[in-house]
Each structure stands twice: as structure tokens, then as C-alpha cells.
Amino acid sequence: MAESKISLEQVRHVARLARLELTAAEEQRLQLELSDILGYVDKLNQLDTAEVAPTAQVGEAGTPAREDAVTNRAAPDAMLANAPARDGFLFKVPRIID
């Protein structure tokens, strides 16, 4: 099998960045799957793109600005209706750090 394109340590690092808690089995499986996919993606390097501009957007709208004005009404109960935990008009969460 081809040399791994991503190490287990890299998988763990990326999982930390993505805020995903992975089991050991998931880590192993993802290492194999991501290696496989990244190996395939490597074919992009067959193309010389030194003089090619990147495409970030395929729409023609560009980045339009609008007036910095409030256009909707406050609706705190509607906005909080899906809250797993609330305290008045606040979303309640576990403490940020121990």
C-alpha cells in the first residue's frame, strides 16, 4: 500500500481544529480513508497552474455592500426556541474553561 499521505498525529491535530472527538477506531479508519482520498487529490499536481488565477466565486454579484440599517425586528423568543438551555434572553452553556 502507498505511503500514508497523512499521519495519525496529523489526524488528531485536524480533529482538534475541527472540534471533533474521535474514537481510536475512527482515528485509524480516517487515517486510511483520508490517505486514500489525498492520494487521489494529488493528481492536481500534474497540472501547471503557476500562471493561473484562482477562482473563489463563480457568480457575478461580487461582494455587494448594503446600508448598515436594521431591517428586522427583535424576536428573542423565536430565536431562543431551539436553545438546548436558556436563561431569560441568554443561551446557557457550560463554563468556557475549567
Binding site: L20, L22, L34, L38, V41, L47, P54
Partner: peptide, 30 residues
């Protein structure tokens, strides 16, 4: 979903952004 989030996070992470994401955007132009 986890697989794609992991792939995407990796492609954008420091040290890999140019090799993966920027490269893919250039191929998109082609």
C-alpha cells in the same frame, strides 16, 4: 460528514492551504 469536515479542515490548515485549497481553486479556473 465527519470525513468531509476532516478533509476540508486539513486542506485549509496552516502549511497545506496553498498545496490543496489554492491549487484546487486554480484548477477550477481551468
Amino acid at each position: 460528514v465527519k470525513r468531509r469536515i476532516m478533509l476540508g479542515t486539513f486542506a485549509l490548515s496552516a502549511g497545506y492551504y496553498d498545496a490543496y485549497y489554492l491549487k484546487a481553486q486554480k484548477v477550477r479556473t481551468l
